[in-house]
Amino acid sequence: MDVIRRFLAAAFGAALLAHAPAFAQQKFITVASTTSTEQSGLFKHILPIFEQKTGIQVRVVALGTGQALDMGKRGDADVVFVHAKPLEEKFVAEGFGVKRFEVMYNDFVLVGPKSDPAKVSGTKDIVAALQKIKAAQAPFASRGDKSGTHFAEVRLWKDAGVDIAKDKGPWYRETGSGMGPTLNTASGMNAYALTDRGTWLSFKNRGDLVISVEGDKRLFNQYGVMLVNPATHPHVKKDMGQAFVDWVISDEGQQAIAGFRIGGEQLFFPNAAP
């Protein structure tokens, strides 16, 4: 008879259901990582292998590298898996991380419209390409979000002799968002953009965008992994977290990374120090 009462009863039941799994005892660790690794599908490929072997569930929160490191600093992650070497080294030096291990690399590519208004395709020289884009005032979409990719892009502009903070004009658009949204923006306004290859390969809404520049050594993108320091954050699950770090840089983990392919193309190249 009573609508509200019935509705409340249903909601109560739902509330109980929602909380049961959250508090169930389960072996898991939280990994702060980047959108590029999560969205490319790498984790979906390698994590089940690790879980099968150890029974440890890995919960990945995908953010920009800056945010992911910040999450580690606050103690909200057990392991950080990102790609901005100088920031990572600072993270460890400040006592937030235990030790940084190199895991793998992929590369950045410069994508742009097929019509190529800045005439940059064909070259391998990313620095020259950026100079041409600036000279032509061709539209360029930047992450602008302090992520690893944004960090790399700013470094490349510097190599090209452009102080982008000062020299940017209306042609340079900062989206302030992740790789995917930035590519959506670039696709929508036919702009150039710097992206990691993994996100690009799994990105579907390309429109007229194609790869303009690739293969320059300066486009190399190194990933590192580190356990959040239990001395700073005592609740860190150090044994399970270290087990994950150890596995990722082990032969088995490295092979799993090498085995991840999209359309036959290998996305990440393991290079952990033996």
Partner: peptide, 14 residues
């Protein structure tokens, strides 16, 4: 999960 989370929130907020 969507339904559980949102219905729980509605229940508490109600």
């Amino acid at each position: 999960l969507s339904l559980r989370v949102s219905l729980s929130a509605v229940c508490i907020a109600t």
